[in-house]
Write a protein that binds this DNA or RNA. Structure first.
Lengths: 128, 128, 128, 128
DNA sequence: GTGGTCTAGACCACC
DNA sequence: GTGGTCTAGACCACG
């Protein structure tokens, strides 16, 4: 199961989107598996310190992408296939790498500096 | 002069904030220097394809941070000291590197894979 | 006994409220009388195809209005006086007539058209 | 133009739906015409004493039914054809008459009493 | 307990 | 000024 305690709200992007991406990254990492149950809206919103509706929106989008199945009275369940996971992986890895490179380039960082920077921060960041 | 045309609105964060960050990254890169004039709100909004009000908001925030000086009827002029630039550099470089590393780690990428990924995308990304 | 099977959930108002009103209209019609027993929550919920909790809420409100008395482990019994019935009648008849007239007037219907419309639908509607 | 001051929140159905129906009844009555502008979200919400978002939801549904057209920066405009009006008229007149008859029947009112009731309330209700 | 919806208020981008 | 969106809190129906 994914440990949502590690979630950190960071940038100015919508919270529901950050939650969505956090879950998708957990899927890519293999921490969230097919058939697993997500925490309930209330539990997760309490953990993250946000409104239940914000979590609900993230879950609704997951359902629209057919990554979870939600029924009244019971928790939302992950519905993952290998293909879905691979597709998410490609989409997100691409986007994250592209975005990071773009920002670093904009700041005039050289390729070597960038690599060194990543390596330096790799050890700084607490393991997730 | 900075090439605003390359600017792409991508994530869900407010546009005025993306503009603000784009300018700050230009400052870090040394492309935007002390005493230089920023394009007028009208010109920049046309370049970016956004509303003048949105650019205005970004400029207002820059002024609040005392990074530009807007004289009545004239263009906005950068007011940069070495210390300001260093401060922005630390703040933004730190945040961008940390954020990138965190996302990659969340996806279960190893340090070596991360470095390879960055290097691969470095060449893909068009120069700015 | 009242024929709950005819009950149809239609508008967007809460189901428990529709149940409440349906019972009150039965009281006005004289179909539900003093001392009579209401069906159990379980039975009524099955008849209406709704959750027992929803029926429970309607019954609780009836009890708060002192229109029924629920003894532990037993069915709910109607506790009606002439005055209560008259009061409900005035309240509901007033509201239903007023609401119907208001809606028709809003649509620019004339008094004669309205009467004709009611008469026409009177025969269409299956008897309850 | 429709005079929203006459709007009265009545039953337990969602406010946005009541607003939607109020507007549709105005269309049927011919008070709201093609090409006319609806009051802005803020103005109407202030008039009705509700949240701008509630009005927004009603307007959004109108737009989904292609009865209005909304653009940023300018007010929503009615887009009505004779066929649309006729269609709304049939739908709403049917529903209102059916609902009124059903309620009156449930209360054990006879056809003659019902007609008399409607006529009596017709004069009571302030003209709209 | 669960998920779904409605109302509310603040903010964003646009004209 | 305009419409659109995000976050928040309360309520509903269900198991």
């Amino acid at each position: 199961m994914i440990s949502f305690e590690e979630f950190i709200m960071q940038d100015g992007s919508p919270i529901y989107q950050q939650i969505l991406l956090f879950i998708k990254r957990g899927i890519i990492a293999g921490i969230i598996k097919d058939g697993e149950e997500l925490p309930s809206r209330r539990v997760l919103s309490a953990l993250l310190g946000v409104n239940p509706n914000t979590v609900q929106k993230a879950y609704r989008l997951l359902e629209e992408e057919k990554l979870i199945q939600s029924l009244q009275g019971s928790r939302s369940t992950m519905v993952l296939t290998e293909e879905k996971v691979r597709s998410i992986r490609e989409e997100l890895l691409e986007e994250d790498a592209r975005s990071a490179v773009q920002k670093l380039k904009q700041m005039g960082i050289s390729r070597e500096e960038a690599v060194e920077l990543i390596e330096r921060y790799w050890d700084k960041e607490s393991n997730l």
